[in-house]
Every structure is written in structure tokens, then in C-alpha cells.
């Protein structure tokens, strides 16, 4: 098991309380999964006023000269709570804010770090993906979180676009950033902390929370097949425990995606229509995942629309 240390950063966010009287200070729990590597685990829920968007994992890595944030959670307030948690650990400057992909629950906290004037980093397709979705993401999340919890959240586009493997130096440790082909989305970026062999997979890995498909099921399975060969000390999923063993962490998700792909392919071969597939494909997985009812049919729909062209 990991030798973990739990930090409880109780934070009074004066600014937020001042700007939005109904918002309350958010204590953010982070776990040190390896020396200098901290992860906050989000809840396995859909965004709501009650959870304020705290539904995804957010991490940071502390070097001797700088800090890098990897995903910023789902609102300005949560980003601020993450920032306070960082400040509870180190005074090093926050030099990089890295987003593993476009989804709002991973990027809407970016605005909390503007004061640090960091370099915002993402996959080279992240800017386009966020660019065409910023309006709808903002609208949908404002509706789900409510005005108060959403207050001040905004889409911030990356300024450093990663097109090939890139190394960032934090002093005494380096992060290796790799852009991937379309899998969970078309802008997935993975990050490896070389010092501790920790691999941040973003939403390429779900555990407990059902995987959600917004890219390519074929691409995702291929990416996972390749990543499986890697020897790393631990991985950090986008949704799930702060730290997991590799490649064991992958089994459940690989089984889910493989089952969906197989069932959908069979139905396509049998001449079945999309509306039929969404009633049966992959339902053997129903008891294995939280939020199955929320996302499974959507996953089957996306898989069907992709695989019928194979």
C-alpha cells in the first residue's frame, strides 16, 4: 500500500464569501500518494448544487522550484480550495496548470490560478475543443451547479499546446507530457512524474465511476493496450481512488469497454438498429459501476455511431 498522508486544508475563502454570500468555504482533502505528489478525489456523482462540481480528481506535484497543477476540478471555488491546499504544503510558485482533457469538471477551476500567472498547458487540440464548447459548457454547468457554486468559473484556453512529448522542469523533478490519439476525447494528455514514477491518466482511467466515452472506443482500447506495458509505481485516475496499482487498475474498465464494443459490433453485424442496441448492449456490466444509469446508454450510442463505420 501507499504510504499516504492526508492533509486536511480547512480554508476560508474570503473573496468568494464576499462576492457570493451563499457560497461557503470548501475544505479540500488531498492525499500525498508519493513524495511531493498530491491528489484530491472527487465524488462519483453528476455535477449538482450539492456537490458544487467536486466530481473529478485534481492533483499537484511539488518540485524544489515550482509547482504544477494537474486538473483543477469543476468550479472557481474548487480551484481556489485546491490552491489553498497547495499553499498549505509549499510556497513554491505555481508555474504550470495542466489540463488532461477538455471536460468542465477538470478545467473550470483554472481561473483560480490566474493570479499566479502560470503557463496553462494542454493537448494541442484542447484549445479548439474548448473553443467550440466554452459557451455550452458554461451554460450547462451554471445550470447544474447553480449560480452561486458556478460564480467566477470560466474556460481558460491553454497557452502551451503539447503536440509531441514534452518535459517540464519543476526543479529536482521533471514531468513528461504526452499527447495521445483520440480515446476518451480527442485531446487526452497524460503526465508522468519521473521522480516517483507516477502516471496521471486523466479520464483515460475510471475506477468505480463508469467510464464515459466522448472520443473513440477503438482508440481508447488501443491506447490502453499500449499503456498497459508501462512500468510505473502507480497511476492516478481521473475518477476513482487517488492512487492505484498498474496495470491492475485497468482491468475493470478494459472489460467494460471491450464488452460494449463486442456487443455493439455483434448487433451491427446482425443488422440491428441503434435504438435496439441501446436497450441491450453492455447491460451485463450494470452492477459493476456507479452512475451506470447516467452514462451507459450514451456510451453505447457513441460506440454504435463509431463502430458502424468499421
Amino acid at each position: 500500500m501507499e504510504n499516504t498522508r492526508v492533509l486536511q486544508a480547512l480554508v476560508a475563502i474570503v473573496a468568494i464569501a464576499f462576492l457570493a454570500p451563499l457560497a461557503w468555504a470548501v475544505p479540500m482533502v488531498v492525499t500525498e500518494v508519493a513524495p511531493g505528489v498530491y491528489v484530491h478525489q472527487g465524488r462519483h456523482e453528476v455535477q449538482s448544487a450539492e456537490n458544487r462540481g467536486d466530481i473529478s480528481n485534481a492533483s499537484f506535484v511539488v518540485g524544489s522550484e515550482a509547482v504544477a497543477v494537474i486538473d483543477t476540478s469543476g468550479s472557481l471555488a474548487l480551484g481556489q480550495a485546491l490552491r489553498e491546499a497547495i499553499r498549505g504544503v509549499t510556497d513554491q510558485p505555481i508555474k504550470y496548470v495542466i489540463n488532461t482533457h477538455m471536460h468542465p469538471d477538470h478545467v473550470l477551476g483554472n481561473a483560480a490560478f490566474k493570479q499566479d500567472k502560470p503557463i496553462f498547458v494542454g493537448h494541442y487540440k484542447l484549445a479548439r475543443a474548448l473553443g467550440t464548447r466554452s459557451e455550452s459548457y458554461a451554460t450547462a454547468n451554471k445550470q447544474m451547479l447553480g449560480e452561486d457554486a458556478f460564480e467566477g468559473s470560466e474556460i481558460i484556453l491553454p497557452t502551451l499546446l503539447i503536440k509531441e512529448t514534452t518535459t517540464l522542469d519543476l526543479g529536482d523533478r521533471t514531468l513528461v507530457l504526452e499527447p495521445l490519439e483520440t480515446a476518451h476525447t480527442d485531446n487526452d494528455l497524460i503526465v508522468t512524474d519521473n521522480k516517483t514514477d507516477t502516471l496521471f491518466l486523466g479520464d483515460l482511467l475510471f475506477s468505480g465511476h463508469i467510464p464515459t466515452l466522448d472520443g473513440s472506443i477503438v482508440g481508447w482500447l488501443e491506447v490502453l493496450d499500449n499503456l498497459k506495458q508501462r512500468e510505473v509505481a502507480r497511476v492516478v485516475p481521473g475518477h476513482g481512488p487517488p492512487s492505484m496499482a498498474w496495470p491492475e487498475a485497468l482491468q475493470a474498465q478494459q472489460r467494460y469497454l471491450t464488452t460494449v464494443a463486442q456487443d455493439v459490433r455483434r448487433q451491427i453485424a446482425e443488422g440491428k438498429a441503434l435504438s435496439e442496441a441501446t436497450k441491450t448492449a453492455g447491460f451485463s456490466e450494470a452492477d459493476n459501476w456507479e452512475l451506470f444509469d447516467k452514462y451507459h446508454v450514451r456510451n453505447v450510442t457513441a460506440a454504435f455511431a463509431e463502430l458502424e463505420w468499421d
Binding site: R128, T132, R133, E135, S136, Y137, T139, A140, T182, T185, D186, D214, G215, S216, A302
Partner: peptide, 10 residues
């Protein structure tokens, strides 16, 4: 909503 109109992979 409007998010419906976005291509997954242009």
C-alpha cells in the same frame, strides 16, 4: 442543449 452540436473528433 447546444453541446449536442459538437463533433467528438472533427
Amino acid at each position: 442543449g447546444c453541446a449536442a452540436m459538437q463533433a467528438k473528433d472533427p
